[in-house]
Amino acid sequence: MPITDLAAVARFNPQTTNVYHLFTRSNPSRSQPLQFNNVNLLQQSNYDSSKRTIVLIHGWMNSATSDFNMALIPVILAAADVNVIVVDWSSGANSINYRIVNWNSVTSGQAVARFIDWVNDLTGSNPGQYHIIGHGVGGHQAGVVGRNVRGQINYVTGLDPALIGWVNNIDRFAPNDALYTEVIHTNYGVNGYLADLAQVDFYPNGGISMPGCNSNECDHARSFFYFAESITSGGFTGTECLNYYAAVLRLCDFSGRLQMGGLTPKVGQTGVYYLETNPARPFSQG
């Protein structure tokens, strides 16, 4: 990494700049900000240690108000009485230099893990109550969080995790980042990672070009729109493939079937799956 990039990385301190926004059914549209080591903010919030916690991590050039968060927060709270924590690491994500953003995503993920450990120490919550969901470079960050929390996170979802700078990156999303890990690929080879990364990988429509889209940005975003719909409908049945090459080529005729997405971890399931979607909502074909 060039010296100028190292200087930019050194200026990013997620321990102090990351902001965590809590949403619950008691405050579904206006967040309660939380900060690492601020006990008063946490104790005065609606955080409930007896409930599951879903952590959302945005991607490159995004923030707490990104479409990713706006698509997921309402459907999650409608489906389940949980704590939703939105991670705002925008001070580390808003650079046009992918090397800086990728490095910042790793250090931010480590900071998020420390935040979760702190919350758990203070409230008595445990890693088994957590589901971490990340989009793009935030997908890899979700994996970093999972592997750095003290104890095993229950469920990590990567929504079209980023490609550039991650192929040989040892910090990329990995199958054992949680008890159950799942990745949805919608723009592989451009914005999204090509190969399988998780215990279970889904390749809707072959994983690169989504029906109804006319840009890579749209394809990339379809991952969180599909995931949002999977929470409300439970649709999207995948057909098992021999490997990700078969999924990309749409040559999958194995007998295995598995539902994509949702808020319930499919612990024990593994493999690569292919499915087709509609060009507009409802995207699921069942």
Score class of each variant (00 low, 15 high):
residue 135 H to S: 14
residue 118 W to C: 04
residue 239 T to A: 00
residue 244 Y to N: 00
residue 200 V to H: 05
residue 249 L to T: 15
residue 131 H to Y: 11
residue 192 G to H: 01
residue 117 D to I: 05
residue 172 R to P: 03
residue 42 L to C: 04
residue 158 G to K: 10
residue 66 S to E: 12
residue 94 N to L: 05
residue 242 L to V: 15
residue 150 R to F: 13
residue 178 A to N: 04
residue 48 D to C: 03
residue 52 R to Y: 10
residue 21 H to K: 13
residue 167 V to N: 12
residue 19 V to Y: 00
residue 136 G to H: 15
residue 259 Q to E: 07
residue 159 L to S: 06
residue 143 G to F: 03
residue 187 N to D: 15
residue 144 V to K: 00
residue 241 C to Q: 01
residue 112 V to W: 01
residue 84 V to S: 06
residue 187 N to T: 04
residue 15 Q to A: 09
residue 128 G to Q: 11
residue 222 R to D: 02
residue 246 A to S: 09
residue 74 P to E: 05
residue 187 N to L: 05
residue 90 S to Y: 08
residue 61 M to T: 13
residue 214 N to A: 14
residue 228 A to S: 15
residue 236 F to K: 00
residue 227 F to C: 09
residue 189 G to W: 10
residue 9 V to R: 12
residue 96 I to F: 15
residue 58 H to Y: 13
residue 156 V to I: 12
residue 177 D to M: 06
residue 13 N to H: 12
residue 157 T to L: 13
residue 127 P to S: 03
residue 187 N to F: 07
residue 265 P to F: 06
residue 102 N to M: 14
residue 43 Q to K: 14
residue 223 S to Q: 06
residue 15 Q to D: 10
residue 170 I to Y: 12
residue 169 N to P: 12
residue 265 P to K: 01
residue 201 D to H: 02
residue 155 Y to P: 12
residue 151 G to E: 06
residue 233 S to R: 09
residue 87 V to P: 09
residue 183 V to H: 07
residue 236 F to Y: 04
residue 227 F to I: 13
residue 118 W to I: 04
residue 69 N to A: 10
residue 14 P to Q: 03
residue 224 F to T: 11
residue 200 V to L: 07
residue 48 D to S: 10
residue 182 E to L: 13
residue 131 H to D: 09
residue 7 A to L: 15
residue 57 I to R: 04
residue 16 T to D: 05
residue 181 T to M: 09
residue 107 T to A: 05
residue 238 G to W: 03
residue 152 Q to W: 07
residue 117 D to G: 02
residue 53 T to I: 09
residue 2 P to E: 14
residue 58 H to E: 11
residue 7 A to C: 14
residue 186 T to A: 03
residue 267 V to A: 02
residue 37 N to S: 01
residue 237 T to C: 00
residue 234 G to V: 06
residue 210 M to I: 09
residue 250 R to Q: 14
residue 260 M to G: 06
residue 158 G to C: 12
residue 36 F to W: 05
residue 172 R to W: 04
residue 198 A to P: 10
residue 123 T to C: 05
residue 153 I to H: 01
residue 143 G to N: 01
residue 132 I to N: 06
residue 225 F to G: 03
residue 208 I to F: 12
residue 26 S to A: 15
residue 258 L to W: 08
residue 149 V to Y: 03
residue 168 N to D: 14
residue 113 A to E: 02
residue 20 Y to M: 02
residue 122 L to D: 05
residue 15 Q to L: 14
residue 18 N to L: 08
residue 212 G to R: 01
residue 156 V to G: 01
residue 123 T to N: 04
residue 54 I to G: 08
residue 86 V to N: 07
residue 217 E to Y: 14
residue 160 D to S: 06
residue 141 Q to D: 04
residue 84 V to L: 08
residue 205 N to T: 05
residue 142 A to F: 10
residue 242 L to Y: 12
residue 209 S to H: 11
residue 160 D to M: 08
residue 204 P to G: 05
residue 56 L to W: 11
residue 116 I to G: 00
residue 51 K to D: 08
residue 272 V to L: 02
residue 256 G to K: 03
residue 171 D to S: 14
residue 130 Y to I: 06
residue 157 T to S: 13
residue 260 M to E: 04
residue 91 S to Q: 15
residue 111 A to C: 02
residue 240 E to A: 07
residue 43 Q to W: 03
residue 25 R to M: 10
residue 81 D to A: 10
residue 218 C to P: 00
residue 171 D to G: 06
residue 228 A to F: 12
residue 115 F to W: 02
residue 195 A to P: 01
residue 104 N to H: 13
residue 68 F to E: 07
residue 277 T to G: 02
residue 249 L to G: 11
residue 188 Y to E: 09
